[in-house]
């Protein structure tokens, strides 16, 4: 069992190392696609033949461990691309830890462009919404995402939709 754990973790860190080197040398234009290719597709090309042709013990277990770690990293990645507002708020409060930070002082450190306009532009880039004159309209992808989260929050958890 220890060899399975060591192998799964070693493969993950090897891919992570490649990721650091590639991102430092040439930053991919579409980072999420590149990340997906590096952490999901590339290892699958190794795991699938191993599972089919080789009699390597524990390939399925190694695959699950690797993908669990890779999924955790990929889910964290958006936080490395942008400044997470809650983290920024905590850092502002930390900087003013003696006197405390007032809500207005925190708001001053944010700008609408970074918080809202950039997010709206990303909806267009990701083809989740389009602008028709003054009105924003969801694409089918956007609708699928909205219905998924409505189902997830309301039907499964019985909660109101998130406040964003």
């Amino acid at each position: 069992m220890n060899s399975i754990v060591i192998t799964g973790i070693a493969i993950f860190f090897a891919i992570l190392l490649i990721h650091i080197v590639v991102w430092n040398i040439l930053r991919p234009k579409s980072e999420i696609t590149a990340l997906f290719a590096l952490f999901i597709i590339f290892p699958a090309m190794m795991f699938i033949p191993m599972a089919i042709f080789a009699s390597t013990a524990g390939v399925v277990e190694i695959t699950l461990l690797y993908y669990a770690l890779a999924a955790a990293y990929i889910q964290s990645y958006p936080g490395f691309k942008i400044t997470i507002p809650s983290f920024k708020i905590l850092q502002i409060i930390y900087e003013q830890r003696r006197s405390g930070a007032k809500k207005e002082e925190i708001a001053e450190k944010f700008d609408r462009h970074e918080l809202i306009d950039d997010r709206l532009n990303l909806l267009v880039v990701d083809r989740l919404a389009i602008r028709e004159g003054p009105i924003w309209v969801l694409t089918w992808r956007g609708k699928v995402l909205v219905y998924f989260f409505i189902f997830f929050r309301k039907k499964i958890y019985g909660m109101e939709l998130g406040e964003g």
Partner: peptide, 25 residues
């Protein structure tokens, strides 16, 4: 590791500005 990924999915439903904007639209 799987729960950490799920935490991000749940958090997205709660805190993501993009999801909030999509719901407003």
């Amino acid at each position: 590791a799987l729960t950490y990924s799920y935490f991000h999915l749940f958090n997205m439903s709660d805190t993501a500005r993009r999801i909030k904007l999509l719901i407003l639209i």
